[in-house]
């Protein structure tokens, strides 16, 4: 006789739970790994900007799905965006992540399939000093050297002229936007379409470049 005739019920259930938890840990590890791989492989557009610059509103206005918190990246919001036949994800990077310790917090971003970045400046009267915003933008651009950026000045409806002037001097070319009024006037609706076509232009250019690099790599490998 190998097993006892009467086997305590709690032993049997305990054994089943132990098996279930062990297999669960193993399968969840694989599931998480695959999930991270999937999210990292999706073409991504980073949306950055100072606190209250309208990053979430921007994603809400342009995305083709609801804004959700990212399953892997803490504090990141994301939504999908249709670019012709392809789908990309708009990723909102929390402001605190690049104020200090960029390298520490944004290391994962480098592993992503980035196609472009959108930087939102808040040019309203009550916003963070424009010098600080410009400094942060430069640090981000330095950190993500190979990435193309689309620079937008948001809150043009309540803009501070001095801030716009300073921005022009430091950054050069940028596009103006007023997300708060996007839904209110037909004139501003055009603004949304313009920005959208800029994003699409930037993204498809970057996508084409990526495809070209991949094709070159594939032909070299073969």
């Amino acid at each position: 006789m190998i097993f006892p005739e009467s086997f305590p019920i709690f032993y049997s259930l305990g054994l089943i739970v132990a098996i279930a938890v062990s297999i669960f840990s193993w399968r969840f590890y694989i599931f998480r790994k695959n999930l991270i791989k999937t999210y990292l492989s999706i073409p991504s557009i980073l949306v950055l900007g100072t606190k209250g610059s309208g990053k979430t509103s921007f994603i809400r206005a342009f995305a083709s799905s609801q804004v959700e918190s990212h399953p892997i990246q803490d504090g990141f919001n994301f939504a999908s965006l249709t670019l012709g036949e392809k789908t990309a994800q708009l990723m909102e990077v929390p402001y605190v992540y690049y104020v200090d310790g960029i390298a520490q917090h944004l290391q994962k971003i480098r592993e992503m399939n980035l196609i472009c970045g959108i930087y939102l400046f808040d040019v309203s009267k009550d916003s963070e000093p424009i010098e600080v915003q410009i400094e942060n933008f430069k640090r981000i651009r330095e950190f993500l050297k190979d990435l193309k950026f689309l620079v937008l000045a948001n809150k043009m409806d309540i803009a501070d002229e001095q801030k716009i002037e300073k921005l022009k001097k430091s950054i050069g070319e940028f596009h103006m936007l007023s997300l708060a009024n996007l839904e209110k006037t037909t004139q501003l609706k055009k603004e949304l379409d313009d920005v959208m076509s800029l994003v699409k232009g930037l993204s498809s250019e970057a996508l084409a470049q990526k495809n070209e690099i991949e094709l070159n790599q594939a032909s070299k490998a073969s």
Binding site: A20, V21, F24, F28, L35, E68, S69, H70, P71, I72
Partner: peptide
């Protein structure tokens, strides 16, 4: 709590 952690806890409790 991250979405992935929510999936973990819901699925684990449900499995048990």
């Amino acid at each position: 709590m991250r979405k992935i952690q929510k999936i973990f806890f819901i699925a684990l409790i449900f499995t048990i």
